[in-house]
């Protein structure tokens, strides 16, 4: 008989969610400061062969840039 592909897909999605949940809990316990969405993208990048240490340094760098942008916007608003 043919496997029920819809049921298979649902099961796979549920398993994937479970995996993401556990990883997210660990990231919180380690205080890695990654929201769920950012973490999911990071996991996809790793699954695509990206080196974790390289990714960590890119994440830190981008966060710094983001904070600077936010600060600059805040200052601009303060002036206006």
């Amino acid at each position: 008989t043919m496997p029920d592909s819809r049921q298979d897909k649902e099961l796979m999605a549920a398993q994937a969610r479970q995996v993401i949940d556990v990883f997210h809990e660990i990231s919180i316990l380690l205080n890695a400061d990654l929201d769920r969405q950012t973490m999911s993208i990071c996991i996809s990048l790793i699954e695509n062969g990206v080196n974790p240490e390289a990714l960590a340094s890119v994440v830190k760098e981008l966060k710094k840039e983001g904070e600077e942008t936010k600060r600059a916007m805040g200052e601009a608003e303060g002036q206006g």
Binding site: F23, I26, S27, L30, N31, A32, D33, L34, C42, I43, I46, P52, E53, L55, A56, S57, V59, K60
Partner: peptide, 11 residues
């Protein structure tokens, strides 16, 4: 690899 990333980001 995923846990390695978290360890590197761990603050």
């Amino acid at each position: 690899e995923i846990l390695h990333l978290f360890l590197e980001l761990s603050d």
